[in-house]
């Protein structure tokens, strides 16, 4: 079974692109399914089901979605094998942009939309930097010049990735994406495999459910903003 990770900012068009592409692949005889990782509620599972694609939805809730992803992907892959899938797409929204769900040796896709600012590719971090394919959506409503500048910005961050413009509404570009997904790697070596980028350690008191504001409620590793002229206790401290 091919396992592909698909990541990108919320509302960039991941699900629309995925549905268009997987429907084409299904017409070519491939059995494709999806695992969708969301942070709070999400209705994308229903969209996949409505498109006739087997889907597993996971809500990370209090946990960081990328940690949730890596703690569960092995079981999800097992589910995919059980379903007899030829291709399992793991879709997750990048939330804080610090992490990426991409796995070494498996095909990694990042979806960005062209309405984002010119500096966005630099803010997206590892889910863009370590991707094999970058799909740019919503380019039909921006100028040709902005497309070219945006693609250049993406290349400045990730020179190795393929860049494709696609339209999740009309399906333009989905055929090309599908052909690339057909050639994606198999997932045989998942256990013992490695993420392409480390996930941060979540060890402050807020990670464990604290809601009260103020220094005395902070535990663990606390990073302080630098404010000129104001003593904030250094950039980093180990609170008790």
């Amino acid at each position: 079974m091919k396992l592909i990770t698909l990541a990108g900012p919320p509302s960039s068009g991941k699900t629309s692109i995925a549905i268009r592409t997987l429907q084409l692949l299904r017409e070519e005889g491939l059995r494709a399914g999806v695992v969708k990782f969301d942070c709070l509620t999400g209705r994308d599972g229903e969209r996949y089901r409505a498109a006739g694609l087997p889907v597993l939805s996971g809500i990370s809730g209090n946990a960081c979605p990328d940690h949730f992803f890596v703690s569960n992907i092995v079981d999800c892959a097992a589910w995919g094998h059980e379903q007899g899938l030829d291709l399992l797409l793991s879709e997750s929204a990048g939330l804080c942009n610090r992490c990426a769900p991409h796995i070494r040796g498996l095909y990694a896709v990042c979806v960005l939309d062209n309405l984002a600012g010119v500096d966005t590719p630099f803010k997206i971090g590892p889910m863009l930097k370590t991707a094999d394919l970058v799909v740019i959506t919503k380019a039909d409503i921006v100028s040709q010049a902005e497309r070219e500048v945006f693609a250049h910005r993406v290349r400045q961050v990730n020179r190795k990735a393929r860049i494709l413009f696609a339209n999740g509404i009309t399906g333009q570009g989905a055929w090309e994406i599908g052909q690339l997904w057909r050639d994606a790697a198999e997932d045989d070596e998942l256990t013992g495999g490695r993420l392409r980028f480390s996930l941060p350690s979540a060890v402050c008191s807020y990670c464990f459910g604290q809601t009260k504001i103020g220094h005395e409620f902070q535990r663990g590793v606390v990073r302080r903003i630098e404010i000129p002229g104001l003593e904030t206790g250094g950039e980093q401290e180990q609170a008790q």
Partner: peptide, 10 residues
């Protein structure tokens, strides 16, 4: 391409 739907957004 230049189409009627295009706008500058940046």
């Amino acid at each position: 391409q230049i189409t009627q739907n295009m706008n500058f957004v940046m």
